[in-house]
Nucleic acid binder design. Structure first.
Length: 364
DNA sequence: CCCAATGATTAAGG
DNA sequence: CCTTAATCATTGGG
């Protein structure tokens, strides 16, 4: 489609607006045949708040915009809609102006024709039926013009809506910090990267995005990670190392409740130091084994295991079934090729898959 | 310009 | 509702 919703609706003074008496157009205004096309347009304009009552506050338009935004529940961004409402009001004004103009022109023309007929009635007999027929013809003509106007307006509204309500068209990348937080969560829950509703809310809060956006992000991330794990190796190493260090620090220092999720260590980018891998290995041993005195390690055990396993698999420090060709298939991805039961097997990438039995899920 | 990355949407399945 | 997978449309770097 063409993106030119502004322009049109500009008829340069076809009829000079004059002060004329209005004839009785009421009778013919009601379209005898309820044209479905016209009804559709009318309904749409009405629903869109364009053809509604006068501008008694933008309530109609606001309601329409809110309804159009989809979900009824939600403190949707109202700043986004202000621009939309402004433009919608513009369309509405143009529409009303034009409509009025057409009506006036129709009346004038009708009057003119009537006068003509009246004049002619002096020289030849004119039946009232003929007059009525004339008027009908005129009104039909102007009705079709009105319909064009309505159609144009509808089109404009549709384009406006797709322009403003289709979020794809105003996509903004998340800021660095947000993606960092999301990635951190993702890679520290690699064996089960499905954040609960609460986790999503919290992530959304921390990243200043909506829960739906968090879901989108994880959906995209999961599929794209799975599709090409190799591509995410670097990133995975980075975040795994970072959170692993964090976890190691936390567990070694006992309960240290502080540090609100911002490790803030921007120093070690790609360089992963192998020296602490030994410590991490020990941690894994104790965590994966049975007796770990901490006892209070509940929900975040899995995350630590995830990151530690990842780190270990990358550093090659853990020999149990981890061979070179398994670099690209770390932790929780099972033989199915996915985290969840894949409905369509469709010949997964790596048929040979090692032990992926890391599942002590903490659902709460 | 091209092109990879990326957020959002859609369809299909549960 | 949720998910996956494919796709769209934009962003931003070269």
């Amino acid at each position: 489609m063409v993106l030119r919703w502004r322009r049109k609706c500009q008829s340069p003074g076809v009829f000079a607006p004059q002060k004329m008496e209005v004839l009785s157009i009421r009778g013919a205004q009601e379209e005898e045949p309820p044209d479905p096309q016209l009804m559709r347009l009318d309904n749409m304009l009405l629903a869109e708040g364009v053809a509604g009552p006068e501008k008694g506050g933008g309530s109609a338009a606001a309601a329409a915009a809110a309804a159009a935004s989809g979900g009824g529940s939600g403190p949707d961004n109202s700043t986004e809609h202000s621009d939309y409402r402004t433009k919608l009001t513009q369309i509405r004004q143009i529409y009303h102006t034009e409509l009025e103009k057409y009506e006036q022109a129709c009346n004038e023309f009708t009057t003119h024709v009537m006068n003509l007929l009246r004049e002619q009635s002096r020289t030849r007999p004119i039946s009232p039926k003929e007059i009525e027929r004339m008027v009908n013809i005129i009104h039909r003509k102007f009705s079709s013009i009105q319909m064009q106007l309505k159609q144009s307006t509808c089109e404009a509204v549709m384009i406006l809506r797709s322009r403003f309500l289709d979020a794809r068209r105003k996509r903004r990348n998340f800021n660095k910090q947000a993606t960092e937080i999301l990635n951190e969560y993702f890679y520290s829950h690699l064996s089960n990267p499905y954040p609960s509703e609460e986790a999503k809310e919290e992530l959304g809060k921390k990243c200043a995005i909506t829960v739906a956006q968090v879901s989108n992000w994880f959906g995209n991330k999961r599929i794209r990670y799975k599709k090409n794990i190799g591509k995410f190796q670097e990133e995975a190493n980075m975040y795994a190392a970072r959170t692993a260090v964090n976890a190691a620090n936390a567990s070694s220092h006992g309960s240290q409740a502080n540090s609100p999720s911002t490790p803030n260590s921007a120093g070690s980018a790609g360089s992963f130091n192998m020296s602490n891998s030994g410590d991490l290995f020990m941690s894994v041993q104790s965590l994966n084994g049975d007796s770990y005195q901490g006892a209070q390690v509940g929900a975040n055990v899995q995350s630590q295991v995830d990151t530690l396993r990842h780190v270990i698999s990358q550093t090659g420090g853990y020999s149990e079934g981890l061979t070179a060709n398994q670099m690209y298939s770390p932790q929780g991805i099972n033989a199915n090729g996915g985290w969840q039961d894949a409905p369509t097997p469709s010949s997964v990438t790596s048929p040979t898959e090692g032990p992926g039995s890391v599942h002590s899920d903490t659902s709460n």
